[in-house]
Nucleic acid binder design. Sequence first.
DNA 1: GCGACGCGATTTGCATACAAAATACACCTG
DNA 2: CAGGTGTATTTTGTATGCAAATCGCGTCGC
Lengths: 225, 225
Amino acid sequence: MMRPDLLAPRPIDRKPLRESLADALRQMIVEGALGPGEKINERALCLQFGVSRTPFREAINLLATEGLVAVTPHRGAAVTPITLDELEEVFPVMGVLEALTGELAATRATDAEIAEIRVLHEEMMRCYRARDRAAYFQLNEEIHDALHRAARNETLARTALSLGLRLRRARYQANLTEARWAAAVAEHEAFTEALEARDAPLLARLLREHLEHKLAAVRAAMALS
Amino acid sequence: MMRPDLLAPRPIDRKPLRESLADALRQMIVEGALGPGEKINERALCLQFGVSRTPFREAINLLATEGLVAVTPHRGAAVTPITLDELEEVFPVMGVLEALTGELAATRATDAEIAEIRVLHEEMMRCYRARDRAAYFQLNEEIHDALHRAARNETLARTALSLGLRLRRARYQANLTEARWAAAVAEHEAFTEALEARDAPLLARLLREHLEHKLAAVRAAMALS
DNA sequence: GCGACGCGATTTGCATACAAAATACACCTG
DNA sequence: CAGGTGTATTTTGTATGCAAATCGCGTCGC
């Protein structure tokens, strides 16, 4: 007997090498394994990954469009440094995208989706109380993904995801103070409630403000470094 | 004597081939030389451009991140079709970005920049009265560029530019009715004035509404096709 | 001793070559 | 004759090779 649940004949993942490489490099950059400003040595990394230069270069170009690396003609690629100026640029853009996400999500989310976000939120709260930073961030991202799914706008999701990478990178550097963390949690609770109430303008405003506060925190953290 | 105006020792253009190719392909796609849905034949186009496949593929990947082409593993690239669904996705995102652009521009533009935009606007009006569509569109784009420069946010400009390509492509298809054109011109006049008054919220609202009207027009045009 | 120049080593950009996958089509089987 | 299967051809993905540009460093001139 067929068991449709298990072993569903879903097309198996045959990701091109360039994408796997891009994923690996992205992670290295976001998590700081490749520090800001660091030059990217094609040959060395190709050897390390055991691939040839062609797909590697394709991956680098991908990251360049995401703004994670800067390529200079005939001078190679380097991880873009995280500057306050850059963050001041990215945050407002991200802010309006998040606001739109909230607006759309509040309008379009199914009840099931809202419930799922509430569950994720509660779990994140648990992680906060346990002071489990890694799990907290993980759930934070899952909630944002869930919001984007609920907003039903692929373009919006992809654009926001790309910009989000540049912010996440900063977060790995400037780490959360206890006070900021508490505030962030409160803000999350507030917009989860706004979503449940399907209050689109409120959710939009809260998300935008949430991001503004994040920027303020990062700004403070960078100022004293 | 030096003449700093002429022959300024600006670093001469050494654009990588991949970028020139991307530009060429972009134009072909936006202007419809490569129709929506059309499959992209690597070999044929490489021969036509007289380049090898490596830089060509890099260009294709670039366009893929811009959403102009879709690449399927082992099955090549194809120009993304323009669907109403896609436009309904892109427009709201573009809308909030334009609104933000307006907000920032109203706050940050120098008087000279505002004056420049006024000049461009007047010229565009002239083109409208002369019913010179091509020049009108050209100036329209220049005004948007000027706004982005005035907003002083490179990230915002680049994001908006990339999304804008997908909309411009639609414009080449669904062409402007006389009524819509008149309305668009009126809207342009309104937000030029808002900029001159440095009324940020108003400018933001006008730009967003302008885009909404554009979408409505495109929607109507596509519905009857 | 300090700076400019030049040459070699390295690195990047593009082209080509090879391997793997997909498509097209003829052939075989029922 | 219809359907499926196997093979040839085309197309894509990856690797390698070659030319041009850049960088590092030693040497020469002042």
